[in-house]
Structures are given as structure tokens and as C-alpha cells.
């Protein structure tokens, strides 16, 4: 099977600063879930930003479905079928829940299909259906999180990139969020996940990608990474010792 995303020798960094990631390679096939783990500052989030065009790569190639997308604008890359959920809560606070969901189908020309997708998203997240006309900034944290995932459902991307989904969430919400991610993965969408909570992230993934100092250390099936004694001590921290 051919690669959905093929990233080769990628170099990226911010502003006039040094390179944050060096010669990074990453491939993902349809319906795969990969979790990138590594210590703080390893460049995990930077990889996602460079794929999605939020950050322009300095060099290297990024191909999506065989098409070169490196250096394209974020909105163009999104329209190819890549959805990015950044760390910060990505809602439009002064818009209603319905308007937020509608933004998920913004670039869709077919209005009937758009309606269907929004309808489907509301069915999957019934709590939002009860609050369609509420300003999303007034939702609770958990509901805002649901809105972000519901909107991603409405986008129906081929590849979804999720940056630190559990960051700053209460334990109950972490479980809920990983449930959303499992739903996304089971619907056939490929997922690349960056997760500080490496243990939980690897559990949700098929493959674990270990990064350090902007470089790929190795990539293995997720359960093997979980068993790897060195990784357990280095990156999994307290969770591993239990």
C-alpha cells in the first residue's frame, strides 16, 4: 500500500532561530495511527506544524497522496484533506455552536453534503445538539473539546494531526478525548498524535515514533515501544514504574 503522507529529510524552525527538526522522515498509510513521543523540546509539535503549513518547512519534501505540499498555505493543505487540531482550544468563541460546526464545512462546495456532515457530527456529539444556538465561548471546557472534535468530524479529513490532546484536561476528559480519537481512527482516518502522556498515547496508536533533539530515534509498533525497557525509563516516567 502506498503512503498517504510521505515526509523526507524535513528541516524546520521558527523565525530566524536555529533548526528545530533535522532530516526528519515520517510516513503514514491510510487508517494507521502513529504516536510521536519524546522529551519536551524534541520538536514533536513542530513536525505537525510543518506538515500543516502553519510553519513553512526550510527544506525537505512533504508529499500527501503523491502531491507535494511543502511550503503551501495552511488553508490549501487543509483542503487536500489534512486536519490539524492544535494544542490551544481551536474554537471561535463569539460564534454559536452551529456556526462553529458550519466552519468545518467552509471549504465544501456541495451544501447538501455539508448539511449531512454537520448532522452526522451532531448525532455523534448529542450534547452539542442541545446547545446549537449557544455562543461556544460560554460552553464548559469539556463541551468545547467536544466541539473541536465534532468539527473535525464535519471536516472528514483523510489525515488528522492532533497536538497534545490531553494537555490540561481533567482525567475524566482525557478518557473522553481518547474515545473521540478511537472513533476517528475506526472510521478509517489516519491519525498522527503527539502526546506528552506517552503511555496513554501509545495505547491508542499502532506505531510509536520516538523523537529526540529534532531527530527520529526509532519507529516501532506501539506495543513494542511500550515494552522497550529503555523507553519505559526515559519517556514513560512514573506511569512505567507502576
Amino acid at each position: 500500500m502506498t503512503n498517504l503522507l510521505d515526509m523526507r529529510n524535513l528541516v524546520a524552525g521558527y523565525g530566524y532561530g536555529p533548526d528545530i527538526i533535522h532530516d526528519f522522515n515520517l510516513q503514514i498509510k491510510k487508517s494507521e495511527v502513529k504516536c510521536i513521543i519524546g522529551p519536551n523540546g524534541a520538536g514533536k509539535s513542530t513536525v505537525l506544524k510543518a506538515i500543516t503549513g502553519v510553519l513553512k518547512p526550510r527544506s525537505g519534501a512533504v508529499e500527501f497522496e503523491g502531491k507535494d505540499i511543502a511550503g503551501k498555505e495552511a488553508y490549501q493543505i487543509m483542503r487536500q484533506g489534512i486536519c490539524f487540531l492544535p494544542q490551544e482550544r481551536a474554537i471561535f468563541p463569539n460564534m454559536t455552536v452551529a456556526e462553529n460546526l458550519k466552519m468545518g464545512t467552509y471549504s465544501l462546495q456541495d451544501k447538501r453534503l455539508a448539511e449531512e456532515r454537520i448532522h452526522h457530527a451532531i448525532e455523534t456529539f448529542p450534547v452539542l445538539g442541545e446547545r446549537l444556538h449557544q455562543l461556544s465561548g460560554t460552553l464548559s471546557g469539556g463541551q468545547q473539546q467536544q466541539l473541536v472534535y465534532a468539527r473535525a468530524f464535519a471536516i472528514q479529513p483523510k489525515l488528522m494531526l492532533i497536538d497534545e490532546p490531553s494537555l490540561g484536561l481533567a482525567p475524566a476528559l482525557v478518557e473522553q478525548t481518547f474515545q473521540h480519537i478511537a472513533n476517528i481512527a475506526s472510521s478509517g482516518i489516519a491519525v498522527i498524535l503527539v502526546e506528552q502522556n506517552a503511555f496513554r498515547g501509545l495505547e491508542a496508536a499502532d506505531y510509536g515514533v520516538v523523537m529526540d533533539l529534532g531527530k527520529l530515534v526509532f519507529e516501532k509498533p506501539a506495543n513494542e515501544v511500550l515494552q522497550d525497557q529503555r523507553i519505559r525509563e526515559l519517556y514513560l516516567g512514573k506511569a512505567a514504574k507502576q
Binding site: E73, A90, I91, Y106
Partner: peptide, 25 residues
């Protein structure tokens, strides 16, 4: 209007607007 909604989205959260496919420039 579609474009009007894009304008509001951009003023509320520029990165998110880009990430749902709005041509922010």
C-alpha cells in the same frame, strides 16, 4: 454571507480559521 463568516472567524481565531480552510491572507 460565506465570506462574512470567514471574516468573523479570522478575527476570533486566525489560526483556526486557516485550519478550517479559510484563505486568511
Amino acid at each position: 454571507s460565506n465570506f462574512g463568516v470567514a471574516i468573523r472567524a479570522t478575527s476570533q481565531n486566525r489560526t483556526s480559521a486557516e485550519l478550517v480552510g479559510v484563505n486568511v491572507k
